[in-house]
Amino acid sequence: MAETISVEVARYSPERDTEPSSQRYDVPLHKDWVVLDALNYIKDKMDGSLTFRWSCRMGICGSCGMMVNGEPKLTCATFLSDYAGDGSPVRVQPLRYFPVIRDLVVEITDFMNKLQSVKPWLIRGDEKAVSEGEYLQTPEQLDRYKQFSMCINCLLCYAACPVYGLDPVFIGPAAIALAQRYNMDSRDEGAGERMDVLAQHEGIWGCTFVGECTKVCPKHVDPAGAIQQYKLTATIERFKSFLMPWAAGNSEMESAK
């Protein structure tokens, strides 16, 4: 008989339950098993009704984010063996601060809308014809935004952000970092449009730099840094538009590249 580990999984059925409960399963403890392997084992062999999201198993798709012992984690990159030893079960819960649809599945439409609102794509004043070739970029220009482009929308940063939990209108870490990813891109000309959304109170000013979003990010994006940097940019723009009203809107952030 192989060694086992207890996994305590949050269960919630909207048809049956008024609030989540937890269910305990004993699964084999393999050295190379991650929390997601345990969940799949439970679903395959023990309880087919367990519901959770997953896809790539390699930290790319960003769909298996959950709370493991109270910390936001990608379950495909969180080893069971790290929680073995003290005899207490591994607690697996849905991502914090999001409404729960069923078991470990959360509702993320709010984030999808916010993401879209910051226009995370290249915006050009006038598009070049395809025949004119690519928009060229130097390695230094790439370096400015590359870090922010690593985001996989796994939403661990939202589950780590008390400001989002307290005030769900806050645009939140990933969406702001992704806005910054395009703002800092030398090919992009949409910083002014994005500022309309970001410089709102719900955009960036609600952030108090708790900094946990950056700590939990599995891709080493620094959303907290992105937000503070953007505060500085927005402040400079605000003073510029106050001192030189005629220049407002033209220069917005383009000089930052």
Binding site: Y12, P14, E15, D17, E19, P20, R96, Y97, P99, V100, I101, E107, T109, D110, N113, K114, Q116, S117, P162, G165, L166, P168, V169, I171, D196, V197, Q200, E202, G203
Partner: peptide, 23 residues
Amino acid sequence: MSGVRQTVRYTEYHPRWYRTRVS
């Protein structure tokens, strides 16, 4: 401009979700 600034939007007509309140 979208309405994200004013409200939090979720999918409509969804069965009951469970929401936790932040302590």
